[in-house]
Computed example of a mutant assay.
Amino acid sequence: MTALPQLSPATLDAYLSASATTLQTVCSSPECLLAVDPSRQNLELWTPDDGTFPDLGRFARVGVTQTERDGGTWNVLTVPAKDLRYEAYGLLVAIIEAMRGGASFAAGTNAALTNLRALLMSRPRLSEAQQVGLVGELLAVRSLLGSSGPHDVLHWWLGPLAEQHDLALPGYDAEVKTTLSERRRHTISGTGQLTPTPGRPLWLVSVQLTRGMDGASLPGLVHDVRRLVHRDHRFEDHLERLGWHDEDADLYETAYVQRTAPTAYLVDTRFPAVTADRLHAVVPRDDLVDLLTYRVDVTDLDADEPGGPLTSFFFEGTPS
């Protein structure tokens, strides 16, 4: 039995970024089609109904429907691919391979879902938000290493230590926020994240990314920074605290490019930050408010440059 042709990560990304749904034949015996729906960020496996139906009770986001095609009834298995596109595609490939080996649609689907569930449970994966956030911080750290020594940069990088702000640079603090959206819309966690440390200015550094084949992957950035800091144990400690494990690098194949050059905004009395003092001033019994998360859109605010060792970072990603 010949190997099943498979899509590369770059091709899959391109299909999921296209303007229309694509439908292509993956296997002729048994007949299997792959549909990629970019509008819903779903992958679908189409195959003629063989009279079996998988047990999907434990998988709320995976569904099977039936449709008429070419004069017959087809099963359509739908898997969400927004945050787990490669895992979703791998799941469909595993089902097709099982069916090529003689398994029914139901048996192949049940086995593949069970295996995927066991795999994900044994290999914790950073969420897309965590991945994007770490990419933004590593881009800033890599930029700092272009003009400052590893000892200083790793001393300034406090984000992995669960400190109040990501970077404590000479003269000011910086909170690095990264987004994949077309606007500079960032999620803020708690009332302390945008509360300046007494006596030190605080800047929100906005990084905009988009997926792109020619960009930097998370494993690639880890490799770059590790080389620049000469494998300093503090960097390895930082990665471990952030949930990064080298053995899971294959889970993070997405490449990112900077949509625009980074920008910075002084978090002063005019900045729309929810702080403990502001909350206390308007919310009764604010001590009962817990797990506060909000989004702030800085797109239309006036950006500035904080100066210091981070200056060169704000010229990176500028369209040529």
Rank of each mutant, 00 (worst) to 15 (best):
G51V: 08
E97N: 09
D49Q: 12
W74V: 01
R69I: 06
A14W: 02
A98E: 06
L7D: 03
A20R: 12
V62W: 10
V36E: 00
D50C: 11
V76W: 02
A112C: 10
D50I: 07
L116G: 08
A35S: 11
Y89T: 06
T73S: 09
P38W: 05
V132W: 06
F53N: 07
A14K: 03
L12F: 00
L56S: 00
E87P: 04
G51D: 14
T11R: 05
Y15T: 00
I95Q: 07
D13F: 06
A14M: 08
Q131K: 14
V62H: 09
A94F: 02
L116R: 15
A106F: 10
A103P: 01
A81H: 08
R69A: 12
A20T: 14
I96L: 03
A88M: 10
S127M: 08
D70S: 05
I96A: 04
A10Y: 01
G51L: 12
Y86P: 00
R125A: 13
T109E: 06
P80E: 05
R40K: 05
A106M: 01
L34D: 02
A103I: 07
A20H: 13
D13W: 07
A94S: 10
A98F: 03
P54S: 04
C32G: 01
V79M: 01
V135G: 03
D13K: 12
W74R: 10
S127H: 03
A81F: 05
L56N: 09
T52M: 11
L91Y: 04
N115G: 14
D13T: 08
Q41T: 12
